[in-house]
């Protein structure tokens, strides 16, 4: 039997990094750009403080959930790998 493909371990890690990256990006750049358009007086695209706070807090919760799920899948697949290695060394 061929070994399970490496993507089964790499993809969940990539997902967790994406979730963290998205939150950090939102907090730094999206919030920053919103302040910049406020400073330039462009209220057509400005998002109110209340909405921006809600966006960031929801993004943070989603980040936790996604990272948690991704790590759960990662560790499950690590166990599958270990089982495979064990069975192939026995066989």
């Amino acid at each position: 039997m061929p070994p399970p493909p490496a993507r089964r371990l790499l993809a969940p890690v990539a997902l967790a990094l994406f979730a963290i990256g998205w939150y950090v990006f939102s907090a730094v750049y999206i919030d920053g750009a919103n302040r910049a358009v406020f400073a330039s007086g462009d209220f057509a695209v400005y998002v109110s403080m209340d909405q921006m706070r809600a966006y960031l807090s929801t993004a943070a919760v989603l980040c936790y959930i996604t990272v948690f799920s991704a790590l759960l899948i990662f560790w499950y697949n690590v166990v599958q790998y270990a089982r495979y290695m064990e069975s192939s060394s026995n066989g």
């Binding site: 939102s26 999206i30 750009a33 919103n34 910049a36 358009v37 330039s40 462009d42 057509a44 695209v45 400005y46 998002v47 909405q51 921006m52 966006y55």
Partner: peptide, 16 residues
């Protein structure tokens, strides 16, 4: 920052 100086982005597209 397209939102500050480019047509459409600066009038039609909220930051988030």
């Amino acid at each position: 920052n397209l939102a500050t100086d480019t047509p459409w982005y600066s009038t039609q597209l909220s930051i988030v």
